[in-house]
Design a protein around this nucleic acid. Sequence first.
DNA 1: GCCCTCTTTCCGTCCAGCGGAAGGGATTTT
DNA 2: AAAATCCCTTCCGCTGGACGGAAAGAGGGC
Lengths: 284, 284
Amino acid sequence: MTVLADKSLEPHRLTSAQRVLSILGVFDTENLALSLSDISRRTGLTLSTTHRLLNELRRWGALSRHSDGKYSIGLRILELGTLAPQGGQLREIALPYLHDLQHATRGNIHLGVPEGHDVIYVESLRARDTVPVPSRLGGRWPMHATGTGLVLLAHASQEFQEEVLASKLRRYTDRTLTDPDALRHFLAEVRKSGVAIVQSQLTYDAMAVAVPIRGPRDRVVAAVGITVPLGSPSPHSLVPVLAATSRSISRALGAPSAVTDAGGPRQTAHWQVREVKYSNSAGR
Amino acid sequence: MTVLADKSLEPHRLTSAQRVLSILGVFDTENLALSLSDISRRTGLTLSTTHRLLNELRRWGALSRHSDGKYSIGLRILELGTLAPQGGQLREIALPYLHDLQHATRGNIHLGVPEGHDVIYVESLRARDTVPVPSRLGGRWPMHATGTGLVLLAHASQEFQEEVLASKLRRYTDRTLTDPDALRHFLAEVRKSGVAIVQSQLTYDAMAVAVPIRGPRDRVVAAVGITVPLGSPSPHSLVPVLAATSRSISRALGAPSAVTDAGGPRQTAHWQVREVKYSNSAGR
DNA sequence: GCCCTCTTTCCGTCCAGCGGAAGGGATTTT
DNA sequence: AAAATCCCTTCCGCTGGACGGAAAGAGGGC
């Protein structure tokens, strides 16, 4: 129960900012509400430190406290999160088009952006009467295991691709693409055809179609995807409508290639973001 | 330009946690991307401190940095925000019903929860072909100025209500309810009728209808509202469908009063939250 | 060219944050 | 009912990390 060995092995001297962040970091989909001592144990911080920081975080609104004494992420964080340019902003612009897409196809629609080696879904519209997919707004999945992720990966820098391919690629089903060579081949196909079509990458009963969305300098900034039950009528039939959606959103973001001269006075939202680099999760 | 007076007046010694939070706090809808010196100025922190903290925040993913050197809120925060029980969780459960509601009414739909003296919209579905309302996911508005806010206020504790009524109530239009007595009367009406119907509270060209959503101990935990253009056919006609939506969501949250015996094996999501207190923004 | 603003790095000082410890409350076990 | 566990909260003395000044580097505009 005591952790003498650990303490001596890891230098884990933290900066005070890191302590604060490590507290926020213990919350995840499986740990939505935690007690003081839970948090203290999971962060490795002492009780008194944790206690003090929790109070500061709560006072600010980053955490809320329930009647049973447990802490959860507070609404102030939700509010903050919508200010992320690749999140709330992009979502805001894309949402109407995504709604149209959902009406037209009745599938699960995802809007994904890259972070580290993962995709984050900044929107996830679920069809009620189809296969339940394990996706949610704010969800994070490895790029190599989702349709949208593979599209993003395909359009990332060569260097970044190799970095991802060299990392440990988790296998979710026996059809998950994990072989670097197979992936390289697949990504080349995606670049050539402009669309990624995959089956049973994450779960056995689903297949996905995804295409890139481009922003200002025609850089790929996001990807839209549809997930439908395995065995649905040809996924290829979804490509045209997906492509149209992608083009609409890209135009709204100001992508040069998507702007038609005869487009008329169609309002083009000026996207605040200049460019967000694909960054490796390692940081530093 | 210099702030000598301020510095001497306020003791503003900050804790290190507060410094971190104050950096996050400078981002808002008007300041989505800020430079190091912007942030330094707005927080009052020195350049070197700001610089160090920004790097730590960026490394963790709380902030991202653009090609022009400016910082924005990062996706990790968006991801975290969806873990807020009153946010992501509630939204997840309510979303299908809200979609139905939108189909049935073609209005702007809001799902609001209380925070401090404000409502936060944890979902905002906009109708494309109607009056543009200044609302967005994650948006924050004073309770007294929105339909959903008034519903939440009406069902808050007496003490909390008086606290809000005693505060400075901003007037957005000349029809915004700001008189404490008029508000007390209105809130009593809302409790009695179970619905709030208001006009031109926030903007002149809109009216709103809102009803409460109840959770576990039959406490009011959220409110759904529809906003339609001023002059639409009787807003009263929206009440039944809104009430039905509210009831469905309340049942899904486990509200005793919404559970019908003959309801069948309808799946009732167990809501993680026990209870979240209405808290005054002052903290401490 | 010069000037101005912004970013990055370095380093010595000092005090704020840290963690141990003790106390209080609630619940369960013997 | 006493004892044994938990968990939360508060207090306080010590120390090492955070802080801010300063200076150098990097653009950009005039």
